[in-house]
Amino acid sequence: MKKLSVFGWPTYIWFCAFLIVPLILVFITSFLTRGTYGGIEWHFNSSHYTNIFRYEYIKIFLTTLKLAFTTSFLCLLIAYPIAWVLTTLPKQKRNMILMFLSVPFLTNLIIRVYAIKVFVGYDGPLQAILKALHISYDQFSLTQNQVLVQYGMVASYLPFMLFPIYVALEKFDYTLVEAAKDLGASNFRVLWDVLLPNTKMAIFNGFTLVLVPSLGEFVIPDLLGGAKNMLIGNLITEQFLKSRDWPAGSALSIVLILMLFAIPQIIKKFFLRQRRA
């Protein structure tokens, strides 16, 4: 249907103007020099890339990778059973649970982070409980630590895992599950041999959808992690908005982009091929 293809043009032009051109500009900027008052001066300079291979930077990159992968795994671990439960419940209950689940995620990230901070904060119930039990704790490490960052990330990115899996399971032909059960399969075998292999693509999509924003996360570690738990996102934001070193920030972003392209490809090769064999 040839005529319908005209609808592709507006989006195509939009992406060129606001996605491709800006990225090219970032790439160019990463080879330029920082102006005296921030901004950009048009002198070639490739030192921003060699500067990245410093111990402190490498450490930040590794911390970020670790956190992003744990977040994706935890999301999968939690989202898959929920999607399974949702697609097998009668409609009324399903709607109710869907509503309860969707409300926190419709809520702004900043609000959720704020609520977590109130929960662990000075007047919060956590400190009250610890006091009542006479457990000594450290004010600062209680309100800013890695566990909180991890919780915040999982709580924020769960729907990105839940959506694709839910859609896949919703379309799934459950008579296959009935057949497997009639033949004596346990719940675990139903999950492992029937559901999982048929929703591989959805899992991969969910995994990527969680992994990618986690790698560039800035807000959650900024507000819940403190200076000790710095991630790539915090580093880049610091370069762009605080020290106003745009070329250095651009170089870091280019490295981040390269990582983001490489990692899903590696997972895809590893994960999708192996199971097909």
Binding site: G8, V21, P22, L23, G216, I236
Partner: peptide, 27 residues
Amino acid sequence: LRKSLEAFTFLALGLPELVMALSLLTL
């Protein structure tokens, strides 16, 4: 240009918000 439109879509999805934010700021 179906192929490149699809590629753009995945690029936009694949970029973390942060990179998109700073590239737009640069633009």
